[in-house]
Design a protein around this nucleic acid. Structure first.
Lengths: 163, 163
DNA sequence: AAACATTTTTAGACCAGGCTATTTTTTAAT
DNA sequence: ATTAAAAAATAGCCTGGTCTAAAAATGTTT
């Protein structure tokens, strides 16, 4: 009845599985990606800036910094500046690239309405091999702009004749 | 520094926002989609079957059934059969369609390794307008198979010359 | 350098969605 | 009809990521 050989889990179930693999949680990824953005120019950022940017309260940032420190992605000591470790920078760059690739793809297929929210939600669930495919595909579409042009034409016609 | 006019939230932050909009949580969607699958033939399913299929324990199912009952998506009374309401069926069908559309798209761009996990994670974060775009795009690719053929060709060549 | 303002930390609470252990109900077998 | 087995419900606990309130550290005037 279900796809053969595929095991289903709830969202929580998958989260537990990936925790066992010692992967970052979605929230950790959000913080890391934001710290990467915020520290790009100066090389550091602060609790307040992260809190404001992610619309969380400062204590949430402090708590998460301890976890990211544990995991070796940020250098941080009490009341100090937040800096990424080389590892943290590497992951931050990866996360930002994943974000942008996904965003570009969605834009190419004509997403406008919930672009940002969808990117933010989807990105955490795109595995590395899938990102590879997406990256290749976006590059392919970029190299052949007539494909997207034609697609948009189809879309428009479809709307014309009432969806 | 960030995309102008776009507000960032953590994964949890988005979850809270969508709860305020009275939307289903990811877990609720997982249960509903599974109940829809399992009850497709007989018209009903049971706690144990849902538990086994989603790899959760029976008490988790009972608890979620109460929530889905509250929300008007399942008809259920103690020790009885689980049936979807018309509303629940409508949503279930939507969720299954979303799942399948996403799955087909990922397959088209050559995803093989984590196909199932990625679909399961991504689907909850695809908004209705984005699904519309994805649906149109998949239909477009299906109607022009030479596009995917050419893409696969590019992919293969890329791997040949070492990435 | 004292006083005030801002930032950060600490402590403790909350919630969803899991879990285990136990009790209750239903079903099946004698 | 009993009894045994299976399924489901209840009660209560746990964890991650949030929050608020309060305390502590740092920075900025005057």
């Amino acid at each position: 009845m279900n796809e053969p050989g595929e095991k289903f889990y709830t969202a929580r179930g998958y989260a537990v599985l990936s925790a066992e693999e010692d992967e970052l949680t979605s929230s950790m990824e959000d913080y890391l990606e934001m710290i990467y953005r915020l520290s790009a120019q100066e090389g550091y950022t602060r609790v307040k800036d992260v809190a404001d940017s992610l619309h969380v309260q400062p204590p949430s940032v402090t708590k998460m910094l301890h976890k990211l420190h544990e995991k070796g992605q940020v250098r941080y000591e009490k009341y100090g500046l937040i800096r990424l470790t080389p590892e943290g920078r590497r992951i931050g760059a990866y996360l930002l690239n994943r974000h942008n690739t996904l965003r570009e793809f969605l834009q190419l297929i004509g997403v406008k309405e919930h672009l940002h929210e969808d990117v933010e939600g989807i990105e955490h669930n795109v595995s590395t091999p899938t990102l590879r495919c997406l990256l290749d595909f976006v590059a392919f579409l970029r190299s052949k702009p007539q494909i997207i042009e034609e697609f948009r034409h189809c879309q428009a016609k479809k709307i014309e004749r009432g969806n």
